[in-house]
Amino acid sequence: MSEDRTIGVILDGVPSRCAEGLPLTSLLAARAPGWRASPRAGAPRGMFCGMGLCFECMVEVDGRPARACLETAREGMKIRTATGPGAGS
């Protein structure tokens, strides 16, 4: 508790702070459990399998597609979700 181990990330354009190395699924789900829309019905989706196989938790990390369940928070990381504020811009 004494030392600040938080780092800064940009989540959907908004500067946010979180613990270093935190799985992105924890960071994203704390905002809302869904952050994608399904391809045909546009239904809300979020992490499902949590181990890299279902691809439901896809996000963009520093401009590249990534599975949130396999990524951990790093200083300066830019995370963009499909349904977050500013999506599609």
Partner: peptide
């Protein structure tokens, strides 16, 4: 079963063990 918040049992374990120790939702 597709609603956000419905996750695998293993996914819950991963959140607890590798995350903050609390469920994020």
């Amino acid at each position: 079963w597709t609603l956000p918040g419905v996750i695998g049992a293993g996914a819950a374990q991963r959140l607890l063990k590798t995350g903050t120790g609390a469920l994020p939702v």
